[in-house]
């Protein structure tokens, strides 16, 4: 550090110094960073347990310096339920992609939300199966080209993209639902605030908290990170609007 200067921002200590395997510009690593900043700020490193999915973020336990558990494909919600019921004083989160949470694990997700299990979902929605080579996911937009929909997704045969945040906000025992993104520094800061809020509601035992991150996939979408931000703005946000879908009533907080 130069003389006369003070440190105002650095990599969180809870994020291990290992180089992340994600593609350049991927929001997975941004969300990892935000998540670990929240853990560092709230000083809950010893009390936090995460559940990893199958997908691009399958190696998240290599980067996050908290207790982690790997789950079978799509079953992170079920594993997190078990952990939270056995250790109710811990802060439990499941970190899942759209192939994991909205495709193979839809049943686990819906039922965990219906039961109001007291843990936090962090759902990375990039609209594509990134790890396996860019196939169509349930959240792929109408007309979006992927390797399994080379002429664009057709709603007549493949249906419309699933809006998970809207769906889970209908459940009575879900406390907090918000969709955020990381496409600008302002939105990235909002993501951090949303994660912090979700953890605080979880500590108060208000019910399931669900954060959906409208993410990008430069490799799967076959574009540069910069172009992926434009695609997010032009195509993803009109269909997946950002914002709070459900919040606990003020007197409860």
């Amino acid at each position: 550090m130069k003389k006369g200067y003070e440190l105002i921002y650095k990599r969180p200590k809870t994020l291990l110094s290992k180089r992340m395997h994600y593609c350049p510009g991927c929001f997975h690593s941004t969300v990892h960073k935000m998540l670990m900043e929240v853990v560092e700020e709230m000083d809950i490193q010893e009390k936090t347990i995460g559940v990893c999915p199958v997908g691009c973020s399958v190696f998240a336990y290599d980067y996050l310096d908290v207790d982690m558990q790997e789950a079978a494909h799509g079953r992170a919600a079920a594993v997190a339920t078990g952990i939270k019921r056995m250790l109710p004083d811990r802060i439990v989160f499941s970190y899942q992609g759209d192939g994991d949470l909205a495709a193979i694990g839809t049943a686990e997700t819906i039922h965990a939300c219906n039961r109001g299990e007291n843990f936090t979902f962090i759902f990375i929605n990039n609209g594509i199966y990134g790890m396996t080579g860019g196939q169509m996911a349930p959240t792929t937009l109408e007309g979006q080209k992927t390797t399994t929909s080379p002429y664009g997704r057709k709603p007549d045969t493949a249906g419309m993209p699933i809006k998970m945040a809207e769906i889970v906000s209908l459940f009575e025992r879900v406390a907090y639902v918000e969709r955020v993104s990381c496409n600008t520094p302002a939105n990235a800061r909002k993501t951090k605030r949303a994660i912090r809020k979700a953890f605080e509601f979880q500590m108060q035992g208000l019910g399931t908290t669900f954060i959906e991150v409208a993410s990008n996939c430069p490799s799967g979408w076959k574009c540069t990170p910069e172009e992926s931000l434009n695609w997010l703005k032009e195509h993803v946000f009109p269909y997946f609007p950002l914002g709070v879908f459900k919040e606990p009533a003020k007197e409860k907080v």
Binding site: Y5, E6, I8, Y9, C26, F27, S29, P185, A188
Partner: peptide, 21 residues
């Protein structure tokens, strides 16, 4: 201007920001 925008958006947490006292 030490606005931290670059550090917040950096996916790989590669940036450290210092501000003049």
């Amino acid at each position: 201007i030490a606005c931290q925008n670059c550090a917040v958006i950096c996916p790989d947490a590669a940036i450290t920001v210092y501000k003049k006292v």
